[in-house]
Design a protein around this nucleic acid. Structure first.
Lengths: 349, 349
DNA sequence: CTGAAAGCGCTTACAG
DNA sequence: CTGAAAGCGCTTACAG
């Protein structure tokens, strides 16, 4: 592992010039730059991250904090972020908050969470931070701001931080209106269970979008048509069993707050002998990989793009452009496949 | 962000002592240590990663290289690794190789891959490396060894590197023998497609385990009973359609080389009106989250534990214990659920 | 456009 | 058990 001194000697310049040439500074003559690059290549020289960071104060490393490492959504965001960072020559260090531990608990209720804010994030290992679907308590927020680094949030509302998010309420409204426009009136909703999300407002927001759409069509929301589940296929399956078995309601369509729950709903409907979409139309939210296979109609929220945009925003800030702590709306798109259609007939008794 | 000097002043000691006390060195008196810890806490002092790394040569950071960021298996490994690292006070930086680009291609065929070895891995940002399911060409191997850092591999065979892996052949044999012991004779295999794995030997290994089991039972493997697919649900679905539609073969059971393909097989069987397990038994490999929901019999290979063990091995090496470049066998376990049973009757014509 | 030199914030022999 | 001091490998004003 050659050091900068060796490169300087081989190129016949000072280490200062090597540093400048390799950093791409404008003030190096083309001839010198070429010689330095050649020397560096010959020696297989790569700048030492820690020495460079210590001297410059920049790490070329971005941290990303996600609630989970096992769900498709977060992985897609991570994937998009990682590619974009890598193409910009940045490393990514991954932090991980266990979900199911609300930020409303006393801060020391979860030692891992506490340690993340008190220790890991304060080591100055990263230039900036991306927080995915996180809701922080005030101590955590203060701690994050105290880092004095660019932070951008995806999804969760983070006071004082620029944030990227899809308009969750609008997405839910769109999904519901798709069903309404097909002629459905008895539309059930499988809501997310707030206990299973760090961003605990999300389920309520989506439900509000659903109710708005109903009211917009002159339909009073029926609480019996709403069940909550844990965002998984199994959860969606079970919720659908309950929904379809309840003699008091007769949904002809289901809007599920995630694609996985929607897939669970499709499987449950099938097991109960209900034809999808003939007897029951189903829409989800996400743009999950499996959607195509199952023919699921959904609202795609392009999680990879969310990761990419978050990185772009953060790199932009690192280039010195100040971002207002406002919210940028991310794209989404209704993708109609085969799980939705007109209701076959009114199924009301 | 306080520096060590401040802590030293507040505690009334030298910076050397602060450094020692906070690093937990034995040679600090309990009283001094307590004062230093108190001072550090009061000031919210956390050691700067880059300064510490530069001075000590240790980064307290481990790199992990995975072929993909979107498959359940790699995410589970990553999850296990991240938790273990975090509990040990280590950070994790994530590197990512696009799959579908074989190591057998010329090294510069994939610029991202090349850059990983030539640049990212050489920045001295990590103390050690974990390579998941990677097969490297000789230049890449040399580059990795040239790092002079502990490397441990999960899965893929990495010459000269300690490796953790489940015995893939034995797993395949076990899955097949489970079917044989139930009385099946016409057992199909949905193999992985080597083009979709960085570790391109894996599909062949599993297939060999399958064939061994058959021969052990006096059955000559029938090539028409083997189809390959891309490790996804959709791939498994399609392969099953082909298998069950082929008039020349009459499988009563399918062994799929991954749980996702096995789930695809279950869905295909169902769509074709075949009862699982009555008409068709299905086994997978993995221990996928969805296995329980679908009632899938599988051989669990505990990917989270794989991640954890890899970290433990690497940390062990960082503590100075030299690991022989041998292979450690990881646990696996047959999990019987509802997708396998005796064949209903011989389905041979 | 380039170099000499200070300094980034720690750690660790060395000496006591 | 503790401190003074060198040094880790870069970057960057400053001067020319």
């Amino acid at each position: 592992m050659a050091k900068i001194q060796k490169v300087a000697e081989l190129a016949g310049v000072s280490t200062a010039t090597v540093s400048r040439a390799l950093a791409g500074k404008a003030s190096v003559s083309p001839a010198t730059r070429a010689r330095v690059e050649q020397a560096a290549k010959e020696l297989g020289y790569v700048v030492s991250a820690s020495a460079s960071s210590l001297a410059s104060g920049r790490t070329r490393n971005v941290g990303i904090v996600t609630p989970q490492l096992s769900s498709w959504f977060y992985m897609s965001v991570l994937d998009g972020a990682q590619r974009t960072l890598s193409d910009a020559g940045y490393d990514l260090t991954l932090y991980h908050l266990d979900a199911n531990i609300g930020a409303d608990l006393p801060a020391d209720a979860n030692p891992r969470r506490r340690r993340l804010f008190d220790e890991f994030l304060r080591r100055k290992r990263v230039d900036a931070l991306i927080a995915v679907s996180l809701e922080l308590n005030s101590a955590e927020l203060a701690s994050m701001h105290g880092l004095n680094k660019p932070v951008v949030g995806i999804g969760g509302p983070l006071p004082g931080v620029p944030t990227l998010s899809v308009d969750d309420k609008a997405i839910a409204t769109l999904a519901t209106e798709h069903l309404l426009s097909l002629g459905h009136r008895d539309i059930a909703h499988i809501a997310g269970d707030p206990d299973f999300e760090l961003d605990f407002h999300l389920p309520a927001t989506r439900r509000a979008g659903y109710e708005d759409a109903l009211r917009g069509a002159g339909i009073e929301p029926e609480p019996l048509l709403v069940r909550s589940a844990d965002f998984t296929i199994a959860g969606g399956y079970d919720a659908t069993l309950q929904l379809l078995g309840d003699p008091r309601v007769h949904p002809t369509a289901i809007f599920a707050a995630s694609d996985e729950m929607a897939i669970g709903a499709m499987l449950a409907a099938r097991d109960l002998g209900r034809d999808v979409p003939g007897d029951l139309s189903i829409v989800g939210i996400d743009g999950h990989d499996l959607g195509g296979f199952f023919g699921l109609t959904t609202v795609d929220q392009f999680p990879q793009i969310q990761g990419r945009r978050a990185v772009e925003t953060v790199l932009h800030e690192l280039d010195g452009e100040h971002e207002e702590p406002s919210n940028e709306e991310l794209p989404y798109e209704l993708v109609v496949r085969k799980s939705t259609s007109k209701p076959r007939a009114t199924s009301k008794p």
